[in-house]
Design a protein around this nucleic acid. Structure first.
Lengths: 345, 345
DNA sequence: TTTAGCACTCTCATAGCGAGAGTGCTAAAA
DNA sequence: TTTTAGCACTCTCGCTATGAGAGTGCTAAA
């Protein structure tokens, strides 16, 4: 597989490129004329045959042109990965969009999802940055009405958790504020693990809130992210690969069920990352639902502090030349943003 | 159109029912045998012809069975609307699900969307309950890091707005808390309109925050809701009506662009509501994108305090018998929940 | 090692054909 | 006047055949 001649490599690259563009099996003749090769179709035919036996190309049926196998796509991606670059113009457009958006996580996520979907013409998924290790910063308790209390927890890094609690008996805003003040003193900059080791607070009300805080922070640490942003579903619906087969439905289900998605993302982060980027082609044998699709994904953020993921899903013949650099670029941007909001620390 | 004989009505109802079930043009013969009518197919044929000229049924081509026109569906819906009921069992299941979920708006919305999608086998859309008139309840200012401040505004009714502000210069948590205390005093239970009439606060910092609060509250009043929950996209993708036509893509775009959706919902709320429920069939000539689809929608909540919407979109031949009562029931449940969280007022 | 030539294969679009389902109309029966 | 039987007619849909087109593999010559 690695013993490809230079000519075989170029031909393979051309076939993959052509197929991605035309979505038609590509034949020896068309390659020669379209790319002005100084070879006869017969020679190309022999090379194609060789690539075929090596498992990089295949024929949908005898006497049809070639289409890439998963292995073929992998070769193609490895080969073009380093060179893939966004044009200056596109980089500027994207950067500009980010800097004129509200400086707000939600805005950024939506924008990132939108940019990825638009540039790649695929489905994009972005998870909000998420603290690797929850560190307490501040708690606020606000009486909303009757026995309901809004609890807002701010973590180091700026992540905000909020939850509505229903108490067994009414409590005044004053009592809440005092409890919050005591808790803020007690928990100041503590990691979540350290909370359970604390002495039990003397006030009953503080005990209850403390339990809730610990629960919330643990929940925040475990889940990849509660907030998943997606865009571009309609891009992909018109693709023939998605033409109402049951397969497509199951695949898109992934995007409706956060649990599946979180599982996927979590498992992926363990895999091999090339240049901070990972390209899953055809599910890599591990994800049945992705058999005919590919996914380009990257982690962004500041490891050890807060990270998130972004991904693009598309047909296996998606435009890697566009998707890969876009994912890389947006990941870089988001990392910068996470980093900046952390400068004050 | 209103001058239908009883027999014509029953036949029309049967045709629509049959078509919704089989998705096949229904012929005179099949009606007679399937529903054991005490009539000959020829008689039914005459009636069908009459319903045809009245514009309630139509033939896809000469010498095919009949399918309902939009007008036909409307008649059907008007007719069956009052009787449509969920079985006790289903009601219990749904109610149970709601009462065992976290008492949290987000949970409720997700659950409502999921229930609607599952029961109707269509796409569901739910907007979070939204204060008709924003009334200030409480503000909290929390320093997250450096010059960034998290502002949390609680409205009467329990709606929570949050925003991250970046100040021009660092401010301590103490200063923030004091400013928040002053603002809480000043704004206590004020409607948003009344804010601009207030005297300018003496402190510079209070002025700035006041402006932001007013902006935020106005934004909250204008938008239908920032939070739109949807589910069941995959239900509908397998339907032939959605088979990769461009039309389907444009329709699903509605669900990706909150602006379009908000527009649709806002305009709809002005329309005629039958029993708190509205059924849009074939876009009613007003929405080109919905030409081949139908939408069942309802408002829920406590008018004057907080309301939201929920809707189901499906092919025009969707199961109204299931969708309509489900939408009605879930709307009732959510109204109760909104009402309950307001009991303490 | 490359290339020309050629027989062969497979797809895909097109046309033709017949079964099946359903209609509308007419004339007889109720 | 209303209902029904009978019948010719129409349109769809699935099946089969056919031929053009694109591409291949192999052989033999350059």
């Amino acid at each position: 597989m690695s013993d490809l001649t230079e000519r075989q490599k170029t031909i393979l690259m051309l076939v993959v490129r052509d197929y991605i563009e035309t979505v038609q099996p590509v034949g020896s003749q068309s390659i020669v004329t379209r790319y002005h090769l100084d070879l006869s179709s017969a020679t190309v035919r022999n090379e194609l045959s060789a690539l075929d036996t090596k498992g990089l190309l295949r024929q949908p049926h005898t006497s049809a042109g070639r289409i890439p196998t998963e292995e073929g796509y992998r070769f193609f991606v490895r080969q073009m990965m380093p060179q893939a670059q966004l044009t200056e113009a596109v980089q500027h457009t994207i950067t500009h969009q980010f800097y004129q958006a509200h400086p707000d996580v939600e805005q950024w996520m939506t924008l990132a999802a939108s940019v990825l979907a638009y540039q790649s013409q695929g489905v994009s998924v972005v998870t909000a940055p998420h603290a690797d290790q929850a560190i307490f910063k501040h708690v606020e308790l606000i009486s909303t009405q009757g026995r309901q209390v809004l609890m807002v927890i701010v973590l180091a890094g700026g992540e905000v958790l909020q939850q509505i609690l229903t108490l067994t008996e009414p409590v005044t805003q004053d009592q809440l504020s005092q409890s919050a003040a005591r808790l803020n003193d007690l928990l100041n900059s503590l990691k979540v693990d350290a909370i359970s080791a604390l002495p039990t607070p003397s006030e009953k009300i503080d005990q209850d809130f403390l339990t809730m805080i610990e629960q919330d922070m643990n929940r925040a640490t475990d889940s990849v992210s509660d907030n998943i942003y997606t865009d571009g579903l309609t891009n992909v619906l018109s693709e023939p690969e998605f033409a109402d087969s049951d397969d497509a439905r199951r695949t898109l289900r992934l995007f409706e069920e956060p649990s599946t998605l979180q599982d996927l993302l979590a498992r992926t982060s363990a895999g091999s990352m090339v240049g901070g980027l990972q390209v899953l082609i055809g599910g890599e044998g591990r994800w049945e639902e992705l058999r005919q699709y590919s996914m380009v994904l990257a982690r962004y953020g500041v490891p050890g502090l807060a990270t998130g993921m972004l991904a693009v899903l598309g047909p296996m013949r998606m435009s890697y030349a566009k998707t890969i650099p876009t994912v890389r670029f947006v990941a870089g941007l988001l990392s910068d943003l996470v980093n900046e909001s952390n400068v004050g620390e």
